[in-house]
Each structure stands twice: as structure tokens, then as C-alpha cells.
Design a protein around this nucleic acid. Structure first.
Length: 457
RNA sequence: GUAGGCAUAGCUCAGUUGGUUAGAGCACCAGAUUGUGGUUCUGGGGGUCGUGGGUUCGAACCCCAUUGCUUACCCCA
């Protein structure tokens, strides 16, 4: 049989030991902050029923869901006519009833509805798991990637919004980022702007276009709005709003002026101000908090706050985002439950930390001492020491006898093991073993007990 | 879905106008060194030059197709 050239699917990656140490550092940092703020971890299955996921992410999103082919003779139940009409969309539901999760929010909503009787509200949960998207990969964009989500469900207090800003500040600050911006907006302000030009029905088109302001500039946004059926009159009205600069307070004040005729717009302003007030009583350490009314994130299910986090130190898409949805669980039949949440893009954060060289040294994580024997007799002598080291919580390995010492030391170097114990006939005879410091190169003859004591330090 | 770039050893890449037997570094194996590595020296294994077709006396190089990867757009973490 011809051997197949090994590869992984496009947009997926292996994680080697060194990368895993670094990834766990990111995950642990974020998880510990979540826990500190009272969030509890859950997990949900990698696959969900396809019907749970479809229709939740818009038409584009549905296309990006990885479907799982039914087991067995999956064609046997298909309406034969469908096979000849090449209607992929309808065929999909007959040959696939499961799919890989696309995000963590929809499975969480499903979870809340299924477990509503055991949950104490407000329910604060976090979840760190991979999600899959059948997207075209590119820089900072994968087909399998991890999301670190925290959500509160069942509390409409804006304190939650404020706490999420603090969580971003604390977690990203702990990871060593020095200059990043938490952008905040409110869907109600966007609704107010749409009301301003009497285009409430076109709010999606409006927000998708102005969301691109910093990317394509005012001319680009204007062109896109014109293409989407807005008038130059509309654009003239919107322009001062989306172009406003200055402090959050001054933006808010002028927004209130502009949106004076829109009850919902003013409500949005009030909500933002409430969040700002909470924050000012509990100042941020590192993050810049910026009201950005062009922020829309293209996610139409947000109803209140909208968050996005960007680093200003390297060129990278957003490293986090989130927002509030008033009817999180409605799609699964549980009405009136509000949710607000955020997500950290761990894979992008990894790329950022790597580019900025912000990972701490993790060498001490691995094996601390390798026992090398010159022959098989040494093994017998080594095993009790090995046991003793491990009982003392010192990560230790015994290299199987038979290999040359050079090879064993090469192994220690490759794994960055800082100490080696060597056992040959001399050591067996004297009972004193050779402890070698692989960094300085120095070595000394010591007893087993002394080795344990030295390495425990 | 749209558009560009790339594809040569396990990895990173050279390879001149198309010209004999396709190279380097790293990694791996062995030796110099029978009990000592990370620095040195010597030698060795490794290639259907992504695949298929074409032009040519002759193709890694030119042309066509195809597959894979990658970057950007759309959208998103």
C-alpha cells in the first residue's frame, strides 16, 4: 500500500509540548480570572444536533457549520428525487443530523434551557472549548480554534457589563499586554441612529457598513451605504455622529443631543453611562475603554452592550468580543431570559503574545532530573531513587539502560532537563551517585537523600 | 463564493538565459572519544523537484491543466 503523505485538514493545527505549555498558560490565566469573578465552568459536546445550530448565525453562518454525515447507509432514507435535483441545502438535512459546534453561546443557551430547573439564577458560567468553522483560513483565522467564554444569564443589571470590562482588563493585563482597547457600544444607540434617518428597518445594512469605518474610511462607508439604498441626505445626517472624536464623556454628550428625539437611542446612552460610572468607581489597570459607536460586529442578535477588544501593539483582528442579548434562550422556548457575555480568542492572543515575546519561561515545568545508567545493573540501583524523587514531587525520569551516555545526555538537553544523575559501577560500589548540573556542567558525588534535598529546593 | 502568490531532502530554503550526476543549513545516524552532553571535526543515509500532460535534442526552470498550501476580499475569534 502506498503511504499517504501525512497532513492535517486545512486551518487545523497540531500543538507540540512547548506550544501546549504556552496555550495552557493563556487558558489558566483567563480561567483563573473567570473563577475569581464567580464564574463556574461547564462543557458541552463537540457535536450538537444540526437543528440546534442552524438558523442561529444567519445565512452566511449556516454555510460555515461543519456537518457530520449520518452513520451507516446515509443515502437509504433520502428522497430519491432530491438526489437528482442537486438541492444541496435540502439534501443536507436528510444525510446529516449532527454538526460540530460553531460557537459556545448557542450550545450554552441550549444548556440553560435543558438544565433550567437545576440552575440558580443569575447563572454565571465560563466555558473553554474548541469551536469549528468551515471558513477559509488566513492569518489569525483557523477552522478549529478555542473560545474562552464567560456569560451571565438571568440578570439585566449593567453591573455585569462593567464586570466584563474589568475581566478583560485583568486577564489581558496579566498576560502582559500593555496597550489594548476595549471598545464598547450599545445596540440601542445604533437603533437610535437608524431612527434618526427613519431607516429602522435597514439597521443591519446600516451597522454592517459603518462597522467598516476604520477599515475602508468614510468614502468607503458612504459608497457602501449608497449601494445599500441609503440617500446622500441620510449619510449627511449620520456623518457627524460616526465621525465624532474626543473623550467618552464628550461623545456621549453630543450623542444625547443628536438622539434627543429617539427614546431608544437615549436609553442606550444611559446604559453606557451607567457602565462608565461603575468602572470609574473601580478603575481599570491597563485597558483603554472607548465608546465606539461604529462598533456593530455584524451580530444582529445583540440588543444592548456590544464589546470588542483590540490590541494596539500588533496588527491583528479582534482578540475578544461579546455583548448582551435580551432573549438568549427564546429560540429554545424559554422566553424572557437575558444574557450578556464575552469571549477571548485564545488562538489570536497566542499569536499576539508570541509576536511580542511575552511568554514567560516555562522550562521548570518539565522533567527536573534524568537518571542515566551505564548498564543494566544501574537500573536496579536507580529505581529506588526514582521512586524517592517522585514521592518528593520532583519530576524524574529513568532513561532505559542500553543507550550510550552521549545519547542519554543528548536526550536531557533536548528536553531541557536541568539535572542528570549518573549511575555506573563506581556509583554502585560507593553508594554515592554523580549528580550533574547540565547548565553549569559541574558534578559531584552525593547520596540519594542529598539528591532529593538538593532538587526539592 | 472572488482575486493574487507559492509548491525542490524530515524542517527552512538556494538552484543563473532551459544544458552533464539537483545543492546548503538545521535535524537524524555513525565515528574521532570503551564513563560525560550543550562548542569542534570527519563520514553517512535520505529527492518520482506536488501531480498529469505539452514544447524541446534536452525541463526543477517555459506553456496548459489539476491538486494542495498561503495571502487578501466577503464574513468572523
Amino acid at each position: 500500500m502506498a503511504s499517504i503523505k501525512p497532513s492535517v485538514p486545512k486551518g487545523t493545527r497540531d500543538f507540540s509540548p512547548n506550544e501546549m505549555a504556552r496555550r495552557n498558560y493563556i487558558f489558566d490565566t483567563i480561567k483563573n480570572v473567570f473563577r475569581k469573578y464567580g464564574y463556574q465552568q461547564i462543557e458541552t459536546p463537540a457535536m450538537e444536533n444540526l437543528s440546534t445550530l442552524t438558523g442561529k448565525y444567519g445565512e452566511e453562518g449556516d454555510k460555515l457549520i461543519f456537518k457530520i454525515l449520518n452513520s451507516g447507509d446515509y443515502l437509504s432514507k433520502v428522497d430519491p428525487q432530491l438526489l437528482t435535483t442537486s438541492n444541496a441545502q435540502r439534501l443536507t438535512f436528510q444525510i446529516s443530523e449532527k454538526a460540530l459546534r460553531y460557537d459556545l453561546t448557542v450550545p450554552f443557551a441550549r444548556y440553560v434551557v435543558m438544565h433550567q430547573n437545576e440552575i440558580t439564577f443569575p447563572f454565571k458560567r465560563f466555558q473553554v472549548q474548541p469551536v469549528w468553522r468551515a471558513d477559509r483560513p488566513q492569518k489569525g483565522r483557523y477552522r478549529e480554534f478555542y473560545q474562552c467564554d464567560a456569560d451571565v444569564v438571568g440578570s439585566d443589571s449593567l453591573l455585569n457589563e462593567a464586570e466584563f470590562v474589568m475581566i478583560y482588563d485583568e486577564a489581558l493585563g496579566k498576560l502582559g499586554l500593555k496597550d489594548f482597547t476595549i471598545k464598547i457600544n450599545n445596540r440601542k444607540i445604533l437603533s437610535g441612529i437608524a431612527e434618526l434617518i427613519d431607516k429602522s428597518d435597514s439597521i443591519v445594512d446600516l451597522t454592517v457598513a459603518i462597522d467598516k469605518l476604520d477599515k475602508i474610511g468614510l468614502d468607503g462607508v458612504s459608497n457602501e451605504l449608497l449601494e445599500r439604498g441609503f440617500t446622500t441626505d441620510d449619510i449627511d445626517k449620520i456623518k457627524p455622529v460616526i465621525l465624532q472624536r474626543g473623550t467618552n464623556q464628550s461623545k456621549l454628550a453630543s450623542l444625547r443631543d443628536t438622539l434627543a428625539g429617539s427614546a431608544i437611542g437615549l436609553k442606550g446612552c444611559d446604559e453606557i453611562e451607567t457602565v462608565f460610572n461603575y468602572i470609574s468607581d473601580c478603575p481599570l489597570q491597563t485597558a483603554n475603554l472607548e465608546l465606539d459607536i461604529t462598533l456593530a460586529r455584524g451580530l444582529n442578535y445583540y440588543t444592548g452592550a456590544i464589546f470588542e477588544v483590540k490590541t494596539n501593539e500588533v496588527q491583528m483582528g479582534s482578540i475578544g468580543g461579546g455583548g448582551r442579548y435580551d432573549d438568549l434562550t427564546g429560540m429554545f422556548g424559554l422566553k424572557g431570559l437575558t444574557g450578556v457575555g464575552i469571549s477571548f480568542g485564545a488562538d489570536r492572543i497566542y499569536d499576539v503574545l508570541e509576536e511580542l515575546d511575552l511568554f514567560p519561561q516555562t522550562a521548570s515545568q518539565g522533567t527536573k532530573v534524568l537518571i542515566c545508567c551505564f548498564d543494566a545493573d544501574g537500573e536496579k540501583f536507580a529505581l529506588p531513587l526514582l521512586k524517592k524523587l517522585r514521592n518528593s514531587n520532583i519530576p524524574a525520569e529513568l532513561y532505559p539502560a542500553g543507550a550510550k551516555i552521549k545519547k542519554q545526555l543528548d536526550y536531557a538537553n533536548a528536553k531541557q532537563v536541568p539535572y542528570v544523575v549518573m549511575i555506573g559501577s563506581d556509583e554502585i560500589q560507593s553508594g554515592l551517585m554523580t549528580l550533574k548540573d547540565m547548565i553549569s556542567g559541574g558534578q559531584e558525588k552525593v547520596s540519594g537523600q542529598e539528591i532529593v534535598e538538593k532538587l526539592r529546593a
